[in-house]
């Protein structure tokens, strides 16, 4: 199928994109890489009157070093994030998660900001972004504000980005030297995970000084496995800590698995992800 008819604008600056949003309000939809939006429009699950394409705004593209953080522009394609040396050095967890996101063609078009703004609970970037304590820079009519990761994801397909706002970049505190692993459990290749666990570990020789664990598809938003993290920081062994990975989660039941099965997966995948991240 093809989408219903819409008008199209392709501004070249964030300011122009914001004023287009202000003009068209609820009738407008932002287009980033289109890898989630175009399927939605083609299935006619959404029928915006105006599509505002961010593809011509150069300032939204690229990765830069900003002292104690790296900054990823919202319109940076997954493939560029995946091969960027700064990301690999300072946010290895993102590098690992992007490697297994969708397929090569989709990674060439889909963008870092688009995936996070889309906020699919099965999306692969939310849990790593949350685990790394990222913050989200959002531009709106009143200027720019920065939202921490634990306030960014609100619900299924819902974030802190307002109708009149645009996500411009994501700041990720440097985790230089931390090991990382993204353990993704899928039914078929190039698809969203049934459950995935994002783990990043500071330490050497298998010992864990500090750890952060994010969970994909264990609730309506990405989640932190806080209880398991605390247990590991407190020196508990991994097998015992991983048993706590499903605490405070609310996993869905669907065709791919029952809620109880997802709880089981979260524990097993946490054990595997932390082991791999710690270099074990």
């Amino acid at each position: 199928m093809i989408p219903t008819a819409f008008d199209y604008v392709a501004p070249t600056t964030v300011e122009d994109a914001l004023s287009a949003l202000a003009t068209h309000g609820d009738d407008a939809k932002i287009l980033a890489g289109g890898q989630s939006l175009l399927p939605v429009l083609r299935m006619r699950l959404n029928a915006p009157e105006v599509v505002i394409d961010l593809g011509k705004i150069e300032s939204l593209r690229g990765v830069r070093d900003d002292g104690d953080a790296i900054v990823i522009g919202a319109m940076t394609p997954h493939s560029v994030v995946g091969s960027d040396p700064l990301v690999k050095e300072h946010a290895l967890l993102i590098h690992r998660a992007v490697e297994h996101l969708a397929d090569e063609q989709i990674r060439h078009r889909g963008t870092f900001g688009g995936a996070l703004a889309h906020a699919d609970p099965a999306g692969d970037l939310g849990a790593p972004a949350l685990a790394l304590g990222s913050s989200f820079v959002i531009a709106g009519p009143g200027g720019t504000r920065t939202v921490p990761a634990d306030e960014f994801f609100i619900d299924l397909f819902e974030t802190a980005i307002g109708d009149d706002e645009i996500l411009t970049e994501v700041r990720i505190p440097k985790h230089t030297g931390w090991g990382a692993h993204y353990e993704k459990f899928v039914r078929v290749a190039h698809q969203w995970p049934i459950v995935a666990v994002a783990a990043t570990v500071k330490g050497s020789g298998g010992s864990i000084e500090d750890v952060a664990i994010g969970l994909t598809n264990m609730g309506s938003t990405p989640l932190r496995a806080r209880a398991a993290e605390d247990a590991l920081r407190g020196g508990q062994d991994l097998a015992a800590a991983a048993e706590l990975a499903d605490q405070d989660t609310n996993p869905p039941s669907d065709l791919n698995g029952e809620s109880s099965y997802r709880r089981h997966l979260a524990k097993v995948l946490t054990r595997r992800a932390v082991t791999a991240a710690a270099g074990g």
Partner: peptide, 23 residues
């Protein structure tokens, strides 16, 4: 109809894309 199959793959500015998922 779901951008899964890749039959429509072309090169856009030198990289591969699924042309059913690009306007």
């Amino acid at each position: 109809d779901t951008s899964n199959c890749g039959a429509c793959t072309v090169h856009l500015d030198g990289t591969s894309v699924k042309s059913c998922n690009v306007l």
